[in-house]
Structures are given as C-alpha cells and as structure tokens.
C-alpha cells in the first residue's frame, strides 16, 4: 500500500512538472464547467475556445477540468522540456 502511495505521489509530481491540459476545440460547446471548477481561477474555457493548451504556470494539473468536462474536450499531454519553457506565468 505504501508503495502504491509512493507511486501515486511520484506520478502526480511527474505530471506537475511535465504535463499540461490540452483541449480538442471541436468538442467544446463553451459551457464553462471547466472554468467554473478550476480551483485557481484559470479561464480554461477560453483556452479551449481558442484551441490553446493551458500553459499557465499556475495550473496545478489537478485534473478537475479534465474530469468534469461533460464532452471530453480536455486531456493531459506530456510536455517536452522545450515546450515547458513557453509557460506564460500569467
């Protein structure tokens, strides 16, 4: 069990440093559930409408928006080290 816990924590850390939320804009109907549920107030919907990945350095990759989107618009993508440097930090 401890091993599992350790594994889960490591995996979460890995996403935190190397993953980001990516939209498939063709699936989005602008309902706003993602933005409404983001714990730190990122306008995820705006990213989805524009087809832009959430490269906001405040993003916790907590997965709330990914899980709650009723249309499967959002998913986690692995980030390359180069793309991580593009984070805006806004």
């Amino acid at each position: 069990m401890l091993r599992n816990l350790f594994h889960d924590a490591s995996r979460k850390n890995m996403i935190l440093v190397s993953g980001y939320v990516s939209p498939e804009p063709g699936r989005c109907v602008q309902c706003g559930i993602c933005t409404y549920n983001c714990p730190i107030g990122i306008d995820v919907r705006l990213h989805a409408m524009r087809g832009e990945p959430v490269r906001d350095s405040r993003c916790l990759t907590c997965g709330e928006c990914v899980t709650l989107c009723p249309r499967g618009v959002l998913s986690f993508e692995k980030a390359s080290p180069a793309s991580l440097k593009q984070g805006t930090g806004r």
Partner: peptide
C-alpha cells in the same frame, strides 16, 4: 450564451452566469 450548456445548468453542474463565454 452556451445553448448546449443549458443541460448542465439544469443539472446544477454549471452556474447560470457561467453560460456566458
């Protein structure tokens, strides 16, 4: 407003003011 989002407003998953993108 998001017309497809009305479904989620009905279930309580989306707030009314959130339907305006």
């Amino acid at each position: 407003y998001s017309r497809p989002g009305l479904a989620y407003y009905l279930t309580g998953e989306a707030a009314r003011e959130q339907l305006y993108p």
